[in-house]
Amino acid sequence: MTAMKKSNPVMKALTSSSRIIVLIALVLIFSLATKGVFFSYKNLVNILYSVSLIGIMVCGASFAVLLGGIDRTVSGNAALSGAIIAMTILNRGATGGNVALALILGLGGGALSGLIHGLILSRFNIPAFLLTLATNEILYGLVQMVTGNLLIYIKGCTLMDYIGQVRWLGIPIPVFIMLVCILFAYIVLNHTVYGRQVYAVGGNREASELSGIPTRRVILIAYIISGFMGALAGFVLSSMNQQASASQANGYENNVLAAIVVGGVSMRGGSGSIQNAILGVFLIGVIENGMNLMGVPSIYKDMVKGIIIIVAVAMDMANQPGTPLNNLKRRLKTKQA
């Protein structure tokens, strides 16, 4: 792996990022404000645990956003996979073979959902936002059909109990699953031909097409990855809760998007990194946790989250030539100089 040795550019990207500075500042502020409770090992693990599901989803949905699309079905895919896995185990028993079947059906369902979205979005000029807004509703409808709108308890499944309850070094397993997903997305985006093609197609689809890149396939695969990651998050969520419900993960798609935007991935596609998207996940997670510890009422928490997203979008706009914010930024820069 020549890739791993080259930590230099990675470090450069991290240190040059304003997000990491903001993150460190927030950690300091919250640690002081909570008299160190925030910075305790237990609380830091809590934060990791609380962001793990969103983190897994971000690892998939970032592919769609980098291509200039969006995937709002991450939550629907999670709910559907959780429901399929729970129902399969409920109906057939929790033997090893059946759990494997349940996993294949559940995760395969997410990949299939992604395949369908990818086929439509790569072939027809439909805005991804509208399509996935609609199909996410359809997915939740399917979940109600599968579960009969009941809460399905999962009992006796060793694998899911393990994921939901066991800790390594005091750290819950879902955190490790998130780390594997981050590593996967990082390697694919930075070191594979496919990753290069994602950035190219997101930046200029026509130029990529004329360079001989199979642009449709690139888009198709991105949505399959996103669908699969959504389904994986659903499986992890069901393992944490030992149950599946018809409204499982509902609304997570907004948190996923918020994290990606706060992470500075351009909604126009072609620019951004998985490292920064994950930083976005942590920024939001840290702020939520910190405000919780400080006892900030939840209405204010939501407002703060909203403001952070607006700031992130404004920063994105300021980097886009031709926008009023960009002009302002340049004027300020020349004044300084």
């Binding site: 950035y199 190219a200 930046g203 200029n204 130029a207 004329l210 072609g270």
Partner: peptide
């Protein structure tokens, strides 16, 4: 601009 290159890359 529209067909030749990816400006961000």
């Amino acid at each position: 601009r529209t067909q030749g290159f990816s400006p961000l890359l």
